[in-house]
Design a protein around this nucleic acid. Structure first.
Lengths: 142, 142
DNA sequence: CTTGTATGGTGCGATATCGTATTATATATG
DNA sequence: CATATATAATACGATATCGCACCATACAAG
């Protein structure tokens, strides 16, 4: 039963990936995309570790993803003002522009999805998913 | 909003991955796991392409995953009896045993999840997820 | 101040993923 | 039958992911 659940999750994730990654620069993944969106809503910036925890990927993966985003000019990295070990990652104007354009580019895709399923059907799933995410998250550290 | 949806999906997938992959041979991923389960319910076997479509991964990825499963002795590959270009993939006894043991090993993990969330809360999400999966799937080929 | 420990980040290496091009077989068409 | 086109699988190469080991800085204890 959980088996079914995780299978569905896996396939939907895969399908979403395929749709998004086909439309954008080849080395930008859905997680990169998510990171950019996350940062846009946090103008003060986040540390790499914040981001790794938020997206549940290992620190090293985040290091690499940030490097890619910097190469594209979508984020900038500065030393952390209060902690010499750390850094702060922020979106650039180019990064914000990229997200906006991407949203527009994906709109038709999402449009048909809404037409066929209904926005409220998706909306209805969100609380349940969030709850599961939070619970699984809490189960991690003990 | 879809953005939220796909973010949740992404993180839950990530968390599920982490839990499962930490418990099993290092080169077995959640998708390998899913493929084995899928094959167990189809004793006549499936072609690599069937599997790739079912799990929404590129053919090349499936080729590689099958190779890994063969190396572990969890599946066997035979020529397709009716199509010389194709093959048939089936689980071995070892593969079935591995799945059973894995299910047992994961039971406590799932147990706490059930305790905290409730099985019916997960169950309630399944139809919605399946519906989205099917719709996105149908949107692919046109 | 010195030492020990915790914490943030990264280099490196192994491997999974996936796009492109290639090979083999099947099927359709003249 | 010959040729063209479609389809199944794979080899190869590029790159993303992630575990491990390491370095730098912070913080705590003596």
């Amino acid at each position: 039963m959980f088996y079914r659940f995780f299978t569905e999750i896996g396939i939907i994730h895969q399908l979403g990936r395929a749709v998004i990654e086909a439309r954008f620069p080849s080395d930008i993944t859905t997680t990169h995309f998510g990171v950019l969106g996350h940062l846009m809503r946090r103008p003060d910036g986040q540390t790499p570790l914040d981001l790794a925890t938020a997206f549940q990927v290992p620190k090293t993966t985040m290091t690499h993803m940030i490097k890619v985003l910097v190469r594209h000019g979508y984020v900038e990295v500065t030393p952390h003002p209060e902690d010499g070990r750390s850094k702060l990652v922020r979106t650039t104007e180019a990064g914000k522009a990229f997200i906006s354009e991407s949203m527009v580019a994906m709109a038709p895709e999402f449009g048909t999805l809404v037409d066929r399923i209904g926005a409220d059907a998706v909306e209805a799933l969100l609380p349940g998913l969030a709850r599961i995410r939070e619970t699984m998250d809490a189960m991690r550290d003990p």
